[in-house]
């Protein structure tokens, strides 16, 4: 509960900090619209030359784009800024201040920066997703809604744990902030259903960089093509990654403080 209050404080600071850079709202909006343009433009170009992509109809891909923006917005609003700050802190030595605070360092590090304007991605995702659902005429009953919500949540947790693990590498290596750049470029691959990729790449995007669980899986929940195995696999992976990332984080902290050296 107290971490919610802490998060609220960080959120408020995020708003305050970003108010200082109001122009960033417009830049972000522009950027998100541009990216939406690329996504939709990409779909448009593809669908001028075909009527389905690996069995996915245009509207189903639109739903995928919606999910992609929704989770992408979460990553950009909270996870990525916080992790950037964390890695910067490791390099500058200012992480010491975080570690001397009487609170869970992992939580502090994970919520410490909110880039509020990045939420435009979420704002953009909602109409895209709604349009897709309306056009699909999907009957979203309580079961489907719940499945969708659960897959979204576990997808987010999977991505969070994964990024936390990547960022934790900052304890051992310098300049790992570039890892995020690479992740975001891998992340783009989630704009397309992973089923179109060749088997080895699909494996990479599912297990090595778990993009599929955050994009393709929730989108397939909306378009009613999710299997029970996938649903539970997604939940199990989320739980497992949370634990593993927690363990890895502690390992990193121990290394940082010279306990394991």
């Amino acid at each position: 509960m107290r971490y919610f209050r802490l998060f609220a404080t960080y959120l408020r600071l995020g708003v305050l900090g970003e108010l200082e850079y109001r122009a960033n709202f417009w830049i972000n909006l522009l950027q998100s619209l541009l990216e939406l343009g690329v996504a939709l433009g990409g779909l448009a170009v593809v669908f001028t030359h075909t009527d389905n992509l690996g069995g996915w109809q245009p509207d189903e891909l639109l739903a995928l784009v919606g999910v992609y923006f929704l989770i992408g917005g979460l990553i950009r609003t909270l996870i990525r800024p916080s992790m950037s700050k964390f890695m910067e802190d490791v390099r500058q030595g200012t992480l010491d201040f975080t570690l001397t605070k009487p609170a869970d360092a992992q939580v502090l590090v994970s919520i410490q920066r909110v880039e509020i304007w990045r939420m435009v991605d979420v704002l953009i995702a909602i109409p895209v997703l709604s349009t897709a659902l309306l056009r699909l005429g999907a009957q979203l009953g309580p079961a489907e809604t719940l499945t969708f919500a659960v897959t979204l949540l576990s997808g987010s947790l999977i991505i969070y744990s994964f990024l936390l693990m990547l960022s934790t590498c900052a304890f051992w290596f310098v300049r790992v902030e570039n890892i995020q750049v690479i992740f975001m470029s891998m992340w783009q691959a989630g704009r397309w259903p992973v089923s179109i990729y060749p088997a080895w790449l699909r494996a990479v995007l599912t297990f090595l960089v778990p993009v599929a669980f955050a994009t393709t899986v929730p989108a397939s929940a909306v378009s009613g093509r999710i299997t029970t195995a996938t649903l539970f696999g997604s939940i199990a992976l989320a739980a497992a990654l949370l634990l593993v990332s927690r363990w890895f984080w502690r390992l990193g902290i121990r290394f940082y403080s010279g306990a394991s050296a």
């Binding site: 570039n178 750049v181 470029s185 891998m186 691959a189 397309w192 790449l201």
Partner: peptide, 16 residues
């Protein structure tokens, strides 16, 4: 990391 980034994107569009 940079290198991998430069491989992923073209690979993605190649596949599509």
């Amino acid at each position: 990391i940079w290198l991998l980034g430069g491989i992923i994107e073209p690979l993605m569009y190649l596949v599509v």
